[in-house]
Design a protein around this nucleic acid. Structure first.
Lengths: 180, 180
DNA sequence: GGGTACATGTAATCAGTTACATGATTTA
DNA sequence: TAAATCATGTAACTGATTACATGTACCC
């Protein structure tokens, strides 16, 4: 029992991981970083990114320093214990199964209750959305190619594959919806 | 402004949709149905499935009837307004982007902070998990082949494709993790 | 120097999760 | 008939979401 850590959430490890990876930063920085990476498939509202560091500090995993000048920004930095906690988490096996929250899929599941038009519209709309996302990932891939490390790029690669699969999938659904 | 509906959640539409699809049922039935379908990739805790119908009844989208005999079960049934609300939802375009909550991916993103062993273990573990899930979907596919409607089967097909993609992905990650 | 967008945070609400609790069936 | 499991809920907590509020920098 190295650390009597009160169950941390994914948000906790996100904050811990980002700060460990990129050094001291403000909640606003976290927000920006998330928006440019993980946020593409796992959204963390900015209010959480302001609240969570305070919690982690009370657990001794971060330390914060407030500016005295105008903006009074609070910078957060990972402590030794914080880094240890992060590494321990990385070594633990994942238990929670992947959750895919997709309102489009939920609708499709009930689409026998709707009309043909609705099915076509859904499929078309989802196809467009996933195509846009795929394009966005491709662009992102170019942008970060030389600043991201190998595993960050691997994560992005998963997004890319996912969107590619989704495009094919909704394209097939569209075909069936049109044909029936 | 057909209905002054207070923003419904995905849980609301899940309940509405299931009851519309399969007729009057108890919260326990809902729980069972979810466990055998959507629940594979989008978990809805049973407490929600007990609480939500009450909310929907207060909105006039369901009506409940309580047994008087031993178990005092409460059966829920969709009203006309409920059905209309469901259909309206099916026709609306999806706005929320797909959320993929996967602790494994989150870890991978930070895996430069961990050791080679941890990366191999993660990839291997995720690969196993997705293989099991894929197998489970295949089995489910056989079971429901003749009871599920076309769009329910299409939803399952998405799960199948997702797991297939995930298996390939983590297999590739495993290779890179081993090789470096 | 007034408007607009960016930056930084707080407060209130609410959904989701965990835990608890108990009655009804089945089975050993 | 005792134990175990299934069935049916409720209560408490807390993380997540939304909304609000204000300060700072930029630009027209």
């Amino acid at each position: 029992m190295s650390s009597p850590t009160e169950a941390l959430t994914p948000t906790s490890y996100l904050v811990l991981g980002l700060l460990a990876q990129r050094g001291p930063a403000t909640s606003y920085d976290l927000k920006q970083w998330v928006a440019g990476s993980i946020g593409y498939f796992w959204s963390f509202p900015h209010s959480q990114l302001y609240a969570e560091p305070a919690r982690l500090e009370s657990l001794g995993l971060l330390v914060g320093t407030a500016e005295v000048s105008g903006r009074k920004r609070r910078y957060w930095e990972v402590t030794e214990r914080g880094r240890a906690e992060l590494v321990a988490w990385l070594e633990q096996p994942v238990t929670d199964p992947t959750q895919v929250h997709d309102a489009g899929l939920l609708k499709l599941f009930f689409m026998a209750q709707g009309g043909r038009e609705a099915r076509i519209a859904l499929a078309q709309h989802q196809l467009d959305a996933h195509r846009r996302k795929h394009a966005a990932y491709l662009e992102l891939d170019q942008e970060v190619r030389d600043v991201a490390d190998e595993w960050q790029r691997a994560t992005l690669d998963c997004g890319l594959r996912f969107e590619q699969m989704a495009c094919r999938y909704w394209s097939d659904v569209l075909e069936r919806a049109t044909g029936s």
